[in-house]
Design a protein around this nucleic acid. Structure first.
Length: 268
DNA sequence: GCTCCTTTGAAGCCC
DNA sequence: GGGCTTCAAAGGAGC
């Protein structure tokens, strides 16, 4: 069962060769629900097959019920989640798929009686909480969520930059002895722009596969499911002053510069 | 305990 | 269709 699940996922991905090859500019991908609709005959990976075996339940046609039936457990997935392993870039992309938790620790894995959630599934509390691996323990957030009868939230798949951040964060922290995420993210943003097209393309490709797997695991999920869930500060505070150049992204948008490459003076 | 900060990219929303 | 907004991660700071 485990092997079947892994191989079916692998074969599925092989049906969708990368759209941006090496040396090609990593243009933002078109919406997957439009651009990468699975062809007829390609089996869909069922969320239930992944998470609910050995008592598989037919996957609902519409997962918008936002209820993911699974044991409320959150093991430490960092060792399995290839993107945090720091080895990405040295391994072929196909290898990383065998280390994706949803594939690696899918249902029916010998020695893994409990189903393992995709990292996108988190308690309603928000941030993922990766705990020391212990299947018999629930995180505080999960226990709280269970008590309150709240449903776990399926998070958005990570984009290319988020994947890059996840991999490089530890390195920047070590190099710069920084802990504040805001400062670290600024550095990572600059480093991201300093990457070559080929380097960035690796992350665009990984992000594309992330979205693809996410789509397979949660067929009815939409980003709108989490839209407006976070409490945000008032819109007035969001408005920039006319003198403040703001973030490089905002600055580029304001001056009509290329989002991929150009940097405006004030943001340098 | 909650929100903000800070980044880029994807996707939703609104006109 | 274009522009704006929200959310993904992260953890310290501030209220």
């Amino acid at each position: 069962m485990y092997k079947e699940t892994v191989y079916s996922a692998f074969n599925l991905l092989m049906h969708y060769p990368p759209t941006s090859g090496a040396g090609q500019h990593p243009q933002p991908q078109p919406p997957l629900h439009k651009a990468n609709q699975p062809p007829h005959g390609v089996p869909q990976l069922s969320l239930y097959e992944h998470f609910n075996s050995p008592h598989p339940t037919p996957a609902p046609a519409d997962i918008s019920q936002k209820q993911v039936h699974r044991p409320l457990q959150t093991p430490d997935l960092s060792g399995f989640y290839s993107l945090t392993s720091g080895s990405m870039g040295q391994l072929p992309h196909t290898v990383s798929w065998f280390t994706h938790p949803s594939l690696m620790l899918g249902s029916g894995v010998p020695g893994h009686p409990a189903a393992i959630p995709h990292p996108a599934i988190v308690p309603p509390s928000g941030k993922q909480e990766l705990q020391p691996f212990d299947r018999n323990l629930k995180t505080q957030a999960e226990s709280k969520a269970e008590k309150e009868g709240k449903k776990p939230t399926i998070k958005k798949p990570l984009n290319a930059f988020m994947l890059y951040m996840k991999e490089m964060r530890a390195k920047v922290i070590a190099e710069c002895t920084l802990k504040e995420s805001a400062a670290i993210n600024q550095i990572l943003g600059r480093r991201w722009h300093a990457l070559s097209r080929e380097e960035q393309a690796k992350y665009y490709e990984l992000a594309r596969k992330e979205r693809q797997l996410h789509m397979q695991l949660y067929p009815g999920w939409s980003a709108r499911d989490n839209y407006g869930k976070k409490k945000r500060r008032s819109r007035e505070k969001h408005q920039e002053s006319t003198t403040d150049p703001g973030s490089p992204k905002k600055c580029r948008a304001r001056f009509g510069l290329n989002q991929q490459t150009d940097w405006c003076g004030p943001c340098r």
